[in-house]
Amino acid sequence: MASNPEPDPPAQAAVVPDRREEFRQMTVRLVAKLRTSEREELCLVRNLSSRGLTAHVYSAIEVDSAVTFEFASGVTIPARVVWQRDSVMGVQFAERTDPALILSVRERFPDAPAPRAPRVELNIGATARVNMVHRPITLNNISQGGARVAVEEPVDVREKLTLLIDGLPPLTGQVRWSRGGVAGLAFLSPVPFDILAQWLPMVQRPPESG
């Protein structure tokens, strides 16, 4: 009797990498600092994946421009603008990035400093009202929650003052630290995001020639 031939080994399926995780997007509402070659401003990230993001922006940025995003988690990511339609922009990250790392480093590193609102660096003149006295200052940076200012006259810690800045409502804050002619303020009420985000591109716009 002829022996039964051994069954052929099962055909191996081709290994196809699962890219669903790579391109899966999550919907978020995340404030970030957007840095271009000319300025810094704020944006609102709407969709996020390991490869890129879409964001609501408040100025026109040319396609293929190099940009950098800085998040409250402390993560900074270089990227390239792929498209912009009206006030929505899509970018591709320079390298694949774990969205969980962007959203929060405190989950991975519990001892990390608490995240704070992104601060935009500036150098513009303004006025501070202290006890009904107006003093000239220079606004060094600003966020929704506070600011750093250069002052000609020292201010005391815990002193309250009001910043009078062209294009913004009066911003009252308390001095948290003061040294070497520079002071840090914490606003008593956060600056509404839309107001601050729309103001930043205008105040940093280059002067028109001619």
Results as ranks from 00 to 15, higher is better:
95 E>L: 12
208 E>M: 10
117 A>S: 15
88 V>P: 01
123 N>C: 09
61 I>K: 01
35 R>P: 02
52 G>N: 11
207 P>S: 01
66 A>L: 09
155 V>C: 04
153 E>F: 00
139 L>I: 08
99 P>L: 09
92 Q>I: 12
135 R>H: 12
89 M>S: 01
24 R>Y: 12
4 N>H: 11
159 E>M: 03
151 V>W: 01
108 R>I: 08
81 V>C: 07
33 K>S: 13
108 R>C: 02
40 E>M: 13
139 L>V: 07
135 R>F: 07
82 V>D: 07
80 R>A: 11
176 R>F: 03
163 L>Q: 00
163 L>E: 04
119 R>K: 11
92 Q>E: 15
42 L>D: 07
199 W>D: 07
132 M>T: 06
103 L>W: 00
53 L>W: 02
109 F>A: 03
9 P>G: 07
103 L>Q: 15
46 R>T: 13
49 S>N: 10
169 P>Q: 05
161 L>F: 00
89 M>L: 14
210 G>Q: 08
78 P>Q: 11
194 D>N: 11
90 G>K: 08
112 A>P: 04
61 I>F: 05
149 V>N: 03
133 V>S: 10
3 S>I: 13
155 V>S: 00
6 E>C: 07
40 E>R: 08
69 F>C: 03
99 P>N: 09
167 G>R: 04
189 S>H: 12
84 Q>E: 07
7 P>E: 13
77 I>C: 05
155 V>W: 03
149 V>Y: 03
49 S>F: 10
133 V>Y: 04
